[in-house]
Design a protein around this nucleic acid. Structure first.
Lengths: 339, 339
DNA sequence: GGGGCATCCGGAAACGGTTCCACATTCGCT
DNA sequence: AGCGAATGTGGAACCGTTTCCGGATGCCCC
């Protein structure tokens, strides 16, 4: 309703001065500024972001593309991003990119191509070169959190190291028959993450001199609690050649595994040690040993990078881009030495 | 980069005609339209939504405020909303309104007050009158999904009936000592939902002639799996006066309960029947009897209403606003007759 | 054959801000 | 005293669309 012209008139100044007074850019006498602010408050003036972004080219808005919102890790990242963005006065528009179907192309070619967002944060999604080129062409900063794709800025946990760390924990306890429940490379889950964790597992068992295949079995399953459950049922079904320890690619899978073990009368950790990765909110309840990562914090970090990228004044060439995100082994009660 | 003027020049028409040709509004010769479309495609023209919304007053964008993204129900609703909105060509900006702190006021007074969104969907949040007035003043349609607050459009499950249905299922099986794990009225969880489910429970046990308090105990807990876990441990700790059935206010709480029972050596369902509500993705794995609601569908429905509200051409006064959202009792293996 | 209507198109005025430029004033400094 | 820089302000252009208005057709039908 109220436009800046109204404010200007009420304060007895020009639109230009009113704009300067309210935005804080350019010279304006303190006295004038106060008059303008009072006038704005009086008529409840709120600037139209559309008009502003039309001329400045900046909407204060970043797009977030994310494959799930209902896996704990992703939900947590999203919350972290949202909080940080809101704190910085930015809006967040959400693109839930599930499968790489036709909807996916539409998001890139239609939604993101419009001038709606200043930048894009892609979490846990493998971008193909056409997609990053599409963003690149519009000069939209892109930061990737996990996943692959040649983005300018990339934040990532060292998933190979995570897999290795988890596996070594089991090895140090004395286990020699270790299984790995890997995430299925399915759908939107970034293959890189899966692959790296698996690689870490293989590296660790190989280094321990355990022959892959026989004593270090890998089974793929959906990266969720039911996925872990059915996977574990399958893996633990043969009493004779059962592993004594299991490394699940995510905490949710580990929960499913624990439940499956209970079903089968297998005691955790006496008969089976279980370790996961994520640091899930429920890990404490399950007493789960896990390699924590901090998804909320990761989201916050991604926002930091985006904001810095948008603030070309500080043209640092991505200072910390190299270091992997922090992780930590937290030992609880689902792992112990084998019987 | 490319503006509509460029398209017009290339096609040899005026900006006005180019706009009409591309938007489909107004008269334009088929031949001309094709020429304009070809020109637009050639230079990769994409309309600036900012400029358009500046003049039309319509951004194709709706705001969604939601207390959590990481509770299954809310995540599912959000996904449903997102899909539907995207399908209709709308963007979704997310406001994660956790606690009613200062951040909350900021969302309403700053973020939503700007002309960024055409409408607001509030899911599971109790709006106070100041907040709905604030939206009302800007003539932004508001549809509420669950929660309370005097919105024009309200979609809601009949939570009292849900509570009653769940409890009656237990009663019909012959249980006479039934506990209810209620959600804590904490933080952002809409009190109305909790209250209504609890009321349904009380109505049902009262109708069955069971004295409240003694044989129909209610315990509050956080509405999550660990919340259900600790709540159940407390509730089932005294072997003497233990209930034979438990109605959990959400499936996640029910999962926690099941796990607690296993810990305590209580067999489900032989020694304890458990029923939840939600129709959680994991319910099948837990074999959980539950009252399903369909959050994804609810989200889709909310979008339908919003879209209709925005399309004032069809000025239906909210046709189906009265009927509660569908729910369904799904019986699995966590409930049975008492021993 | 001519009035009315539907169709087609272009000029120009919005929409609501920001910013460039020009102009005035004051201030600090030699 | 004089001059450049810093400060303060207003006019006007501009961002990229949509839409109003008005003119120019062509067509139907009386």
């Amino acid at each position: 309703m109220a436009a800046i012209g109204d404010v200007a008139r009420l304060a007895g100044v020009s639109k230009a001065t009113a704009s300067r007074a309210l935005s804080g850019r350019g010279y304006v006498a303190d006295d004038t500024r106060r008059r303008v602010e009072a006038a704005a408050a009086e008529i409840g003036y709120i600037a139209s972001p559309d008009a502003a972004s039309l001329v400045t080219g900046r909407t204060k808005n970043v797009g977030v593309i994310i494959p799930f919102v209902n896996r704990w890790f992703f939900g947590e990242v999203l919350e972290g991003i949202e909080r940080a963005l809101l704190g910085a006065g930015y809006d967040l528009t959400l693109y839930n990119l599930s499968e790489p179907g036709p909807g996916r192309a539409r998001v890139f070619d239609f939604f993101l191509a419009r001038k709606r967002v200043d930048a894009v944060i892609a979490v846990g999604v493998d971008l193909d070169e056409h997609e990053v080129a599409s963003l690149d062409r519009r000069e939209k900063p892109l930061v990737c959190l996990g996943g692959s794709g040649g983005a300018a800025a990339r934040l990532s946990v060292d998933d190979r190291a995570v897999g290795q760390l988890a596996t070594e924990h089991l090895l140090h306890l004395g286990h020699t028959r270790i299984a790995h429940l890997a995430g299925a490379g399915a759908a939107a889950m970034p293959a890189s993450v899966q692959g790296q964790r698996r690689r870490g597992f293989l590296d660790a068992v190989a280094a321990a001199g355990i022959p892959a295949g026989e004593h270090a079995h890998i089974l793929e399953a959906e990266m969720s609690m039911p996925g872990g459950h059915t996977g574990a049922l399958q893996l633990l079904g043969h009493p004779g050649r059962r592993p004594t320890a299991l490394f699940a690619a995510s905490d949710e899978m580990a929960f499913g595994t624990i439940r499956a073990a209970e079903r089968l009368g297998i005691d955790v950790p006496a008969d089976l040690s279980v370790i996961g990765v994520d640091g899930h909110e429920y890990a404490e309840m399950f007493e789960l040993t896990t390699v924590e990562q901090y998804p909320g914090e990761q989201g916050r970090l991604a926002v930091d990078v985006v904001l810095r990228l948008l603030d070309e004044a500080t043209a640092d060439p991505l200072p910390d881009s190299g270091a992997p995100l922090p992780t930590r082994l937290v030992v609880r009660s689902t792992t112990s030495a084998p019987r």
